[in-house]
Simulated assay, not measured.
Amino acid sequence: MRNIFILIISLIFISCNEIVLPKPKAYLSLEYPKKEYKKLEISGPYTFEILKAAKVIDAKNYWLKIRYPKLKASLDITYRPVENNIKELLTEAEKLVFKHALKAEQITPKDFIDTNKRVFGSLYEITGNAASQIQFHITDSTTNFIKGSLSFYAKPNYDSILPAVAYIKEDILRLIETLEWKN
């Protein structure tokens, strides 16, 4: 019995010749392609610039889905004509934003006004584990109304998707800045 005990102890000391150290902290390393934009070519009543790497799905009624396949995200654009219902359209857009208030930590609005191009709107940045991290609406106040919503094809974990949100936010700002009404 004593020999077996000495053998087991000897094996433990012989087998443990490697020093165990804690693993170093890892940092998330995301690389995004350099931004190149192109003008959106659709037959709708509006146009703007989009990222060349994005995939555009043109749906009926001038609605769009702008996909970011590498980021597993999409920007959904809905268009509605203004027919003496601008107040209703604005109220509906804001209700959709504040629907995320339960999961959001903060909702930060930013207004846009370009009287020369007749582009008026608001962008809402939603921080926290909400289903949509950025929503916006743009109008010329008399004829056209666009609403956009950014979402990811994954369970929301804001800390993980924050770099991707910041990357796509630049594209959304570019969209708003380059928007032109065709009519």
Score class of each variant (00 low, 15 high):
K95Q: 13
T139Y: 03
A131T: 15
P81C: 02
A101N: 06
F136V: 13
H137N: 11
R67W: 01
A130W: 03
R67T: 03
H100W: 00
L90G: 11
T139V: 04
S122A: 15
I134K: 09
E88R: 15
P81G: 10
I66T: 00
D140M: 07
S74R: 02
T143E: 10
I77C: 03
N116G: 03
N85E: 09
K95A: 08
D111A: 15
S74M: 06
A131Y: 05
Q135P: 01
K117G: 00
G121Y: 01
K103N: 09
A93N: 02
E125N: 13
E105A: 01
K117M: 13
Y124V: 02
Y62I: 01
F98K: 00
K95P: 03
W63K: 14
H137E: 05
L90C: 10
F98A: 04
R118K: 15
I134S: 08
Q133F: 13
D140W: 00
I77W: 03
Y124R: 12
K70P: 01
K99H: 05
F120W: 08
I134Y: 10
I86A: 02
K110N: 09
Y79M: 05
T91A: 06
E83Y: 13
N129T: 12
D111K: 15
T115W: 11
E88N: 14
T143D: 10
E125Q: 14
N116S: 14
L89F: 07
I126R: 06
F120I: 02
E94P: 06
Y62W: 11
I66V: 11
K87C: 00
F120V: 02
Y124F: 15
R118W: 00
Q106M: 10
I126H: 02
A101H: 04
W63P: 01
T142M: 12
G128L: 07
K87I: 14
T115P: 01
A131V: 14
T142S: 14
G128E: 11
V119L: 05
N85H: 10
L75S: 06
S132G: 09
I107S: 08
S132Q: 13
G121I: 03
P81F: 07
K72L: 15
P69E: 05
A131F: 06
I126T: 06
D114T: 07
V119D: 04
V82L: 07
N61G: 04
D76G: 09
G121E: 03
I66N: 02
A73D: 04
A93S: 05
N85Q: 11
K103G: 00
A101K: 15
D111Y: 06
D114P: 09
Y68P: 03
T142W: 08
Q106C: 02
T115L: 10
R80N: 12
I134R: 08
S141G: 07
A93V: 08
N84I: 04
I134M: 12
I77V: 11
A131I: 13
V119A: 01
E92I: 07
Y68V: 05
H137R: 13
V82I: 14
E94T: 07
K110A: 13
R80S: 12
N84V: 04
K103S: 05
D111I: 09
S122Q: 14
P69K: 04
N144A: 10
L71M: 15
